[in-house]
Design a protein around this nucleic acid. Structure first.
Lengths: 192, 192
DNA sequence: TATCTAATTAAATGCTCATGAAAGTAGGTG
DNA sequence: CACCTACTTTCATGAGCATTTAATTAGATA
């Protein structure tokens, strides 16, 4: 898994309020005001924290009338929690250590314009992985994308979105099921 | 594990520099200046981060002349990383291994009056655990109680609240930090 | 002794972020 | 329509913290 993802995950849990929210959601789904009540906090504060937790993929939600029930994405929680145990080791080392932070930054600097557009799609596997991993940062974990949505998203980086889409599947960053696309669990990225 | 400990652990890993240090130490011990060199940072910065990591138990060190070799305490890393997976969970589920539901009900029926008062505090360990677990059901998980608040709460069950308070700590149902009390997550309860 | 190296401390700087008040949005109901 | 409820957005405040420079401590060596 990418170092930044790991950092963001732990940053999300490096706050007492958010850990208490996790503890509450372990018992079952809850809506916002219930959480606020149990923790003695105001609704805006809960919104703020749920946003943080959602950004790292830890929250699933279901809407009923104008009440939103939050629940825990335990799959993501488990994978993210275990990521730190293997960082810098084994297969992971080949991605994150063989490609140093400086190298990664240089690859991205060379292959993307200042506007964030991809200049050309690299053939070299190492660069390809860096580029793909960089572009999917804007995608949400656990969310299902239609092919149209995914095309739109990819087009902001590169006109030949079909190539990008195909590579995302072939390199296991994403998973396709009857024309719907979803990010693969981070675990699978290590296979590279 | 204690909620605050979990937070401190994740706070320690919620920083890119420290995660990079962890990744480096996964490969083997390193001394301070070597870490500084590999990360492109100054020695004081490394000192700062090693202090943070040491505070949550992640660092072992060995001194050779005036060089200090840091290495990773992988045991602590693993336990701390997994703590978030069970926080807030299990309340009733995990206790059952020691005592059956029927047994528990009989113990509570025998030792509490109809008003819910505790008749006397049992010496037998098994009964003691059931009684304590029963009484803390009214406490909020994740909330910090002053000693005064806790005394007030316990007094509703038993006049000798000091005994109850001491036993709650000794049996690991609660955790005390500078005269503030908090419920321990369930996974500690059945250690003893 | 003086000197070199490694690590730490102290102080300053600048950035990140948790919290809540006030105002705004969205969906549902009478 | 007005009204209610649940949630979000914006903004201000204040606390925490990552980083570095300069000075200091500690150990080893010649």
């Amino acid at each position: 898994m990418q170092l930044n993802k790991i950092v963001e995950f732990h940053k999300a849990l490096g706050d007492l309020t958010r850990v208490r929210i996790i503890a509450l959601l372990q018992q079952g789904p809850l809506h916002g005001q219930a959480i606020a009540g149990k923790l003695g906090l105001k609704p805006p504060t809960i919104t703020h924290h749920m946003t943080k937790l959602r950004e790292v993929g830890l929250i699933k939600e279901r809407r009923d009338k104008n009440t939103i029930y939050f629940s825990l994405n335990t799959k993501i929680l488990e994978m993210s929690a275990k990521a730190i145990l293997t960082v810098g080791r084994g297969r992971d080392a080949n991605m994150d250590m063989a490609v140093t932070v400086e190298e990664r930054e240089e690859i991205i600097r060379n292959l993307f314009t200042n506007d964030g557009k991809l200049k050309n799609f690299p053939a070299q596997r190492k660069k390809k992985l860096v580029v793909l991993e960089h572009m999917i940062q804007g995608l949400e974990f656990g969310k299902v994308y239609s092919e149209k949505e995914l095309n739109e998203y990819l087009k902001q980086y590169y006109d030949d979105f079909a190539t990008l889409r195909r590579e995302l599947i072939m390199c296991q960053f994403m998973y396709r099921e009857n024309n719907q696309y979803e990010l693969n669990p981070v675990e699978l990225w290590w296979i590279h």
